[in-house]
């Protein structure tokens, strides 16, 4: 599924990474424990997490997860976004909680 379509459909607030991204994602992983994500996240996943510090970009980049969605409008640190731009990781926030995001992504065919 194309990232830009997900951003538009879910009305996400994109904070970093290329605009109108035509990159694709093919799965979703939800977890806030970084080593757990390291063990079980997959390349091409959208990662939904409430963590907003710099290290989430290292995890996403190492696992080649192109997109992070931070739920419930949690504010993301500036240094995290700067690093995300550097690594071209798309970070978005949403007013929705993780469960609702997962349901909507599922409805979209993920």
């Amino acid at each position: 599924m194309i990232i830009n379509e997900i951003i538009e459909e879910l009305k996400l607030n994109q904070l970093s990474g290329e605009k109108n991204s035509m990159k694709t994602v093919d799965g979703v992983y939800i977890c806030d424990l970084l080593s757990w994500v390291m063990a079980n996240g997959s390349k091409g996943d959208i990662w939904i997490t409430v963590q907003t510090h710099l290290n989430i970009i290292a995890v996403a980049s190492l696992l080649e997860m192109p997109m992070i969605i931070v739920p419930e409008s949690i504010e993301v640190e500036e240094e995290t976004l700067a690093k995300a731009d550097e690594e071209n990781i798309i970070v978005c926030t949403s007013e929705l909680d993780s469960f609702t995001l997962a349901c909507k992504l599922n409805e979209m065919g993920m």
Partner: peptide
């Protein structure tokens, strides 16, 4: 609180 300390570090390294 930062999401570290899941107790998966060394097991991940071994795996």
């Amino acid at each position: 609180e930062m999401g570290f300390g899941a107790g998966m570090g060394l097991p991940n390294m071994k795996r």
